[in-house]
Amino acid sequence: MRRLLLVHHTPSPNLQAMFEAVVSGATDPEIEGVELVRRPALAATAQDALAADGFILGTPVNFGMMSGALKCFFDLAYYPCLDATRGRPYGLYVHGNDDTAGAVRGVEKITTGLAWERVAAPVSVTAGPTKDELRACWELGATVAATLMP
């Protein structure tokens, strides 16, 4: 069974709704042969990342950047994963009050360094999330999970 690791920092109701939509998409009954492993960013380890075949990352925007919790995960996992996880697929969702560009850019710099392959456009939400944005989160989860199907 392939393993999809969802590393998230979910401190608000808006991010909780996005997280639940991503989980729903990634665990849709049509997705077969993929196990979704959920880890809060401060609990996720390099070993979790090394055992994963793909990744979904979720973060709030704090001071224009990804959360410190997600950054901590990357700090711990970056060098152990640098060569071992090259080419693995990932997706990203972010929530901010007015601008998400800095957080998306920061995550993309790190994932580029890791040579992970983005398989879906990032879902960036300000305010809301709306019904359409939750649908986009669902599609993000389903898309990343589907890329791992045998």
Rank of each mutant, 00 (worst) to 15 (best):
A145M: 05
T45I: 00
E117W: 13
G68F: 14
W138S: 12
P29E: 15
V123L: 05
T85L: 05
L4M: 01
A146P: 11
T59I: 14
A127K: 15
A26R: 06
A69K: 12
E117P: 02
A41Y: 05
A121H: 13
E20I: 03
G106I: 01
V7S: 01
T27V: 07
L140A: 02
S24R: 07
W116Y: 08
V23E: 07
T59W: 14
A146E: 04
N14G: 11
R2N: 09
G25E: 02
R3I: 09
L134R: 00
E108V: 05
K71P: 05
I31R: 02
P80C: 09
A142Q: 13
M18I: 07
A142L: 07
S12A: 03
M1H: 11
T126I: 07
V61P: 13
V34K: 02
P150R: 10
T100R: 09
D28M: 00
M1R: 12
P29S: 01
N97P: 15
V104G: 07
V107C: 10
E20C: 09
R2D: 10
P89D: 06
P40W: 09
C137R: 08
V104Q: 04
E20L: 01
G141L: 04
D28E: 15
T111F: 13
L82D: 09
H9T: 12
T100C: 07
V34T: 06
G106S: 09
K109H: 14
A127E: 14
A44V: 06
F74N: 04
G33L: 03
F63M: 15
P29Y: 07
G25S: 00
N62F: 15
D75W: 14
L6N: 10
N97L: 06
E32H: 15
R3Q: 15
T100A: 00
A103V: 05
V61K: 12
A84T: 03
T111Q: 11
L148E: 00
E139K: 07
E139G: 08
V125K: 10
F63A: 15
G96F: 00
V23K: 05
Y90P: 02
S124A: 09
A84K: 03
L42H: 10
T147I: 08
P122I: 07
R86E: 14
L15E: 03
S124D: 01
K131N: 13
T100W: 09
W138G: 08
L6D: 04
V37I: 11
A103S: 09
T130C: 13
F63C: 11
D98M: 15
T45D: 02
D83F: 14
H9I: 05
L140T: 03
Q16M: 12
A103Y: 11
C72N: 15
I31F: 10
A145S: 03
Y79S: 04
I31A: 00
T85Y: 09
D99V: 09
W116F: 10
L4H: 01
F73I: 03
V7A: 03
H95K: 10
Q16H: 14
L76R: 14
G128A: 12
T10N: 11
L57Y: 13
A142K: 12
V144K: 04
N97T: 08
A51F: 00
S124L: 10
E35F: 14
G102F: 01
A127Y: 08
K131P: 14
Y90E: 01
G141C: 06
F19H: 15
A26Y: 12
A44Q: 02
D83W: 15
I56Y: 07
G128H: 13
A121Q: 12
